[in-house]
Computed example of a mutant assay.
Amino acid sequence: MEQFRQTLPVSALGEDARVAFYKKSYTYLAFAVLLFIVVEYLFLQVPFIVETGMQMMQGGWTWLVVLGIFMFATNYVETVAIKSKDKTVHHAMLFAYVILEALIFVPLIYIAIQVSGARESDILTQAAIMTLALFAGLSMVAFTTKKDFSFLKSIITIGSFLALGLIVAGTFFGGFELGLWFSVGMVVLASASILYQTSNMIHKYEEDQYVAASLGLFASLMLLFWYVVSIFLSE
């Protein structure tokens, strides 16, 4: 009976257990965001990391390789975190993914800081507020409707491959600019991912997988933040 209870999804648990799971998941998400901010700040203090990030972002195919590695790592850590029952593995995957995200974000954050100084406006703060507002709104939709958004997985997968294809086209064909509408489309895709991940947290995860749930939410949140920043930069 104990083994059976351990395999129950969160949706089948009592209200107190569900609330405890949600609190743990969002607490770990908050810690992940805080760790990201701290690590990102430290990375930006190292000229070598900033210069390397800028060179790779402006290097065309090299940035495409970085994005490919990033997509593979995202799928890998999420899969390992979900399948593994070892909380140590869950924590390690979340920590490693936060560090990877911080590295990927270095050139974008650096550019945003420079542009903010030129425009005398805080792009990062504006983008963060917009991102958190969208995240909160989408999370509320998932919780209030209690709908299973697992059907979005195929849409997200197709959208991700389409986006990667457009990035490849933009990389190898110099005159092909992705532009503002690509970022808007990616915001829509990230929003779908947030609905999907929140729905999984409500309906799919087991009681001891709160770290894995926070990892999925963090990945979707950072994807949304990346393209919200990109939209602000394109104005």
Rank of each mutant, 00 (worst) to 15 (best):
L132C: 03
Y26D: 05
V228D: 02
E206I: 07
M222I: 15
D16S: 13
A20W: 01
L34Y: 00
K153H: 07
W181H: 15
G53F: 04
A192Y: 09
A112D: 00
S11M: 05
Q6R: 13
E51M: 04
S116F: 10
F225N: 08
S191Y: 06
L215W: 07
E2A: 11
F95A: 09
T62D: 02
Q197N: 15
V38I: 15
F218Q: 04
F21N: 10
V50I: 11
I104V: 15
L152P: 04
T171W: 07
G174C: 02
I111T: 14
L134E: 09
I104E: 00
Q6F: 03
L162P: 00
S183F: 01
L224V: 01
D122S: 13
Y97N: 10
F95V: 12
G117M: 12
S230E: 04
F48H: 04
N200H: 06
L13A: 14
T52Y: 00
P47D: 03
I37H: 05
I156S: 10
V46D: 05
F225A: 07
I104Y: 11
L35T: 03
T7K: 14
S193L: 12
V89T: 13
E51C: 01
T62V: 15
I158A: 15
G175I: 08
I113G: 03
A127N: 13
I113T: 14
V188R: 14
F4L: 15
N200I: 01
V80H: 01
G165F: 09
Q58F: 03
G59F: 09
F143G: 02
P107M: 11
L162G: 14
V66F: 12
M186V: 13
L67T: 10
L152N: 07
S154E: 13
S116A: 12
L13M: 12
G159L: 09
L138F: 11
M93P: 01
I156L: 03
A96W: 06
L221P: 05
I37F: 12
L35C: 11
I99V: 15
R18D: 01
V228L: 06
V66P: 00
L134C: 01
T74Q: 14
S11A: 13
N75C: 00
Q3S: 12
I194T: 06
G59V: 03
K204C: 00
Y205S: 02
Q58M: 11
F151I: 10
V168G: 10
F218H: 09
D16L: 05
A118F: 09
I231M: 14
I109A: 06
A128Y: 08
Y205G: 05
G59S: 10
F151R: 12
A136S: 10
I37Y: 03
G14Y: 01
T131G: 11
H91W: 09
T145Q: 05
G174I: 11
A12G: 00
A163L: 04
Y22N: 11
I156Y: 07
F143V: 03
V66M: 10
H91Y: 12
E207F: 02
S183N: 15
W63G: 14
M222H: 01
S116K: 10
N200T: 04
E40V: 05
L178T: 15
F161W: 14
S214C: 05
S11H: 08
I99E: 06
G185R: 13
V229F: 06
D148M: 08
I111W: 06
W63D: 09
T125E: 00
L180M: 15
M56Y: 11
Y110G: 01
A163M: 06
E40I: 04
L100G: 09
L162E: 02
H91M: 13
